Simulated scan of single mutants.
Amino acid sequence: MHHPTAPRPLARAGRRHALLLLAALAAAPAAPALAAGPYPDKPVRVVVPFPAGGGTDIVARLIGPYLSAELKQPIVFDNRAGAATVIGTEQVASAPADGYTLLFTSSAFTANASLMKKLPYDPLRDFAPIGQAALHPFVLVAHPSIPANDLKGLLAYAKQNPGKLSYASVGPGSSQHLGMELLKRMAGVDIVHIPYRGSAPAMADLLGGQVDLMFNGISPTLQHIRSGKLKVLATDSDRRVPLLPDVPTVAEAAGLPGYKITTWSGLLAPAGIPDDVKTRLEAAWAKVMGNADLKKELTERGLVPNYVAAGPFGQMLKDDKEEWARLTRDAKVQPE
C-alpha cells in the first residue's frame, strides 16, 4: 500500500540537520574574534640585533621583567646579531605588524643609513617608534703612561706631538670611532685610529699600552678606572653621569661646547602596527620606564634612564640620522 505521508519524519529530520548546519555556519565567523582577545594574548618577541651580553642587550634584559609584568605576557628576547645590526633589524622590518615582534636597538639603527651604501629597509619609513629607554654614555680613558692627567693636558700634548698618540675603536663608523673623530676635529689634533673587532681586544691592548686612548662603555670600564689601571678623562654625553659625578663631560673638560655623541637605546615596531596595539605598547612602555626600581638598576650600570615618548622619539630618530650623516661625512668614513 502506498503511504504518501511516510517520508515526512525523514524530511523533518533533514530540515533539522540543514537548520543546525546553517546555524553552525552562521556562528563560525564569530569564533576567531572570540579567540583573539585583547592585545597581547601570547608571548611578545623582542629582537635585539646585538650579541648577548652587550650594552644594548643588558638594557633590554633589565627592562624585560617589568614589561612582561605590565603586558601580562612573557617577553622572549631573540639576539640576532650580524652585519652591524642589519640582520636583526631587517627581520623586524619584514615581520607581521601585529605587535608580537618588536625591535630593541641603539644608535646603530640611525647611523647605518650613513655607514652602508644600501640598507634592506628604511629606518624611518619601515618602523613605528614606541619609546626611548636610556642613554649609553661612553667614558674616555687613557693608559697611565700618557703624560697628561686631564683632557686639556692630553689635547695640548697631542697638538705638540701630531700623530704620536693612538686610539682604539671597535671599527670604522662605530660610536667610539666617530666620537674621537669629532673630538679631533673640534680640538684640531691628529690622533691615529686603530680599529679592532670588538671592545674586548681593544681594551686588552689599551691595558697593555699598545694603544693610548679609547672611548668605551662605563660599566665594563669602571673596574679598570677604580683599580688605577686606566686614567679617566671625560664622558661623551651632554651631562655628567650619575655613576661618575666627578668626571666632566668632554665639553666641560676640553672647553668644547656642543660636543656630545651619547648613544641611546629604544623600542620600535614594524610600520603599520594597529593603532590600538601601538597605544597599548606606548602606555606600557611609559609606565615601565617610569619605574623607580628599573631606573636604579640602569643607573647602577652607568646608564642614564631617558624615557622619550613615541612622538618625540620619532623626531629624535630623524635628527639623529642627520647628525650621523654629518659626523660620518666630517670623519671621511666611506659607506661600505
Rank of each mutant, 00 (worst) to 15 (best):
H2M: 10
H3R: 15
A6S: 12
P7D: 14
R15I: 14
H17R: 15
A18M: 12
A18T: 13
L19Q: 14
L19W: 14
L20W: 10
A26L: 12
A33C: 03
P38L: 14
Y39P: 12
V48A: 06
F50E: 14
G53M: 13
E70H: 15
L71G: 11
F77G: 14
R80G: 04
S94W: 00
L102C: 02
K117N: 01
D122I: 02
A128M: 12
G131Q: 05
V141Q: 06
K152V: 02
G163Y: 05
K164W: 11
Y167F: 13
A168R: 05
P172N: 00
S174Y: 04
M186N: 08
V189K: 08
G198M: 10
S199N: 10
L206I: 11
N216D: 13
I218Y: 02
S227P: 05
S227W: 07
V232K: 03
L233D: 02
P242Y: 10
L243Q: 10
L243N: 10
L244H: 05
P257C: 12
T262A: 12
S265P: 12
S265C: 15
G266T: 04
G272K: 08
L281Q: 09
N291A: 06
A292D: 07
K295V: 01
E297P: 06
E300W: 05
P305R: 07
A309M: 06
A310G: 11
P312A: 13
M316R: 15
L317Y: 11
R326M: 11
T328Y: 05
Q334A: 07
